[in-house]
Design a protein around this nucleic acid. Sequence first.
DNA 1: AACGTGTTCAACCGCGTGGGC
DNA 2: AGCCCACGCGGTTGAACACGT
Length: 278
Amino acid sequence: MVRAPFYDKNGVKKGAWSAEEDEKLRSYIQRFGHWNWRELPKYAGLERCGKSCRLRWMNYLRPEVKHGSFTEEEDALILKLHQAYGNRWSMIAASLPGRTDNEIKNQWHSRLKARANRNPTSSTDQSQSGSMSTHSLDGEAESIHIDIPPNMILESSALSPTATTSSTVELSSSNMILGTSALSPMTPSTVELSSASPVFDSVYTPNLSVEGGGTENVHLPSCLSGMYEDGSGGDFWSEPFVAEKDVPPPYEIYDDAYAMDLLFYQMMHGDQPNFFPY
DNA sequence: AACGTGTTCAACCGCGTGGGC
DNA sequence: AGCCCACGCGGTTGAACACGT
């Protein structure tokens, strides 16, 4: 359902992604993170542009991305949020964990827009109240309670544990995102590069210009250094990442992810980090 | 079975924004 | 202040698929 693969005049591959490319990108990001989208394809052994890699990861490969059709509750929430925010898909997506802005945009254009046009006042008159009703496609009315304070989206974020939560937590973005895993507020692949965690900053983001390709600019916290120097992670700074031969089997990838999850969790809770829990 | 039309959705493209120099 | 770069966002595209004739 997508463009057939082809190469543009600069030799950059475009069009549909192959399973092999997906695996290369997934493996690379799960091991090293997305430290620089523009440089990433070179190191991951991909002939794509960084933009394409970013899109593929964000919209399809991220572990937390939910695939499959939207539920009636999700549709109702999109309709409601679209009333409030218009075509600001990323803002809407922030309230639907596992759904991407692209998916939501597609859902809107292919299904919900028509529904909204058919029933333009279904949520407008209740936009400031605590509940809304919507109508399923077969005409059967249903009511969904979603308490969304007017400032909820702006104030809450996955990185804001102090964000206000309402009593209807099941549809509060802050709670939904933070609650995606009992252990892990979010997978490392998504958040490890954010500025929220000094530990991850130290691991991935400083001095990433890779000048000289050496390791002297990398300031791993001493407690972390073993994780990336024991050979299991490869030499990021000197070796281009070759997924086919270099990727550990999936359980190793997820063990790393688990370790980072645990580390993040411990940092967030002020616990003494335990870097090798297993 | 063959064809035409509508729908879906992954991917592309251009632009705006923010940070660094 | 101005420029450059990287990133993220939203609009658009196009091929596969579904469905009707």
